[in-house]
């Protein structure tokens, strides 16, 4: 099958918008020249949409406005926020009437939830921070378990078990003011108390995964 001569596809572009707030085109021209002098490369040749909502329904000569802009090498593609009368004028000048879309749905960078627990975690208790980090203001007792898909921060002694990166996150860390744990694990790699005693240089510690093995650093706490 021959390739069709044309295709229609949707696509979205980011356009600069120039807001006109004054009916007096001489004043507009003066301010525009001032702006252009500051940053000519920013405007020249770039497609512009003119927003006329700042005129609050006052009349303006769209043809003159277009002339004013094109003479300064600005490329106008359309108007937005215009009254019905101004829209008609714009149409006569071959300009499109554009509706501003909603704020583009940019997906925010994935943020982790942080679960904060302001108490001691006692023997037999278990705390799990799903999809996020766990922060504990207190101690984790022998026989207690703290688990997080992210990292675990303990502002107190860790005497029980701590499992960070429970969902497989290899970048998770375990930090405690005093490392006396029964077990620490990151993404499934674990140390028992005796391994910890061999490796732990000081009271406080930050445990993380390097390659396939756990490492511990003491903290200047």
């Amino acid at each position: 099958m021959p390739k069709p001569s044309l295709e229609l596809k949707g696509s979205s572009f980011t356009l600069s918008v120039l807001h006109i707030n004054n009916q007096d085109l001489d004043a507009v021209a003066a301010e525009l020249d001032h702006k252009l002098a500051q940053a000519p490369q920013f405007f020249i040749g770039a497609p512009l949409v003119v927003n006329l909502s700042g005129l609050d329904g006052e009349e303006v000569d769209v043809a003159a406005l277009k002339q004013l802009l094109t003479s300064r090498q600005l490329v106008i593609v359309g108007v937005t926020g215009a009254s019905a009368a101004l829209n008609q004028q714009a149409k006569d000048q071959g300009l499109a009437s554009i509706k501003a879309g909603k704020q583009s749905p940019v997906t925010p960078p994935q943020v982790r939830n942080t679960k904060i627990v302001k108490q001691n975690i006692r023997s037999g208790q278990q705390v799990y921070a799903k999809d996020g980090d766990l922060v504990i203001f207190g101690a984790v007792g022998n026989g207690a378990e703290v688990i997080a898909d992210g990292s675990i921060h303990i502002y107190g002694a860790l005497r029980g078990k701590a499992m960070a990166g429970a969902g497989g996150d290899r970048h998770a860390v375990i930090i405690a003011q005093s490392m006396e744990a029964e077990l620490v694990s990151i993404a499934g790699q674990y140390w028992l108390a005796e391994n910890l005693q061999q490796h732990c240089p000081g009271k406080s510690g930050c445990i993380r995964l390097e390659g396939e093995s756990l490492i511990v650093e003491s903290l200047p706490l």
Binding site: Q119, N120, R122, S123, G141, N142
Partner: peptide, 13 residues
Amino acid sequence: VRDSDRILGMLQS
């Protein structure tokens, strides 16, 4: 001490 810690958890929950 460990059992007491356990009981403290019960008192709190």
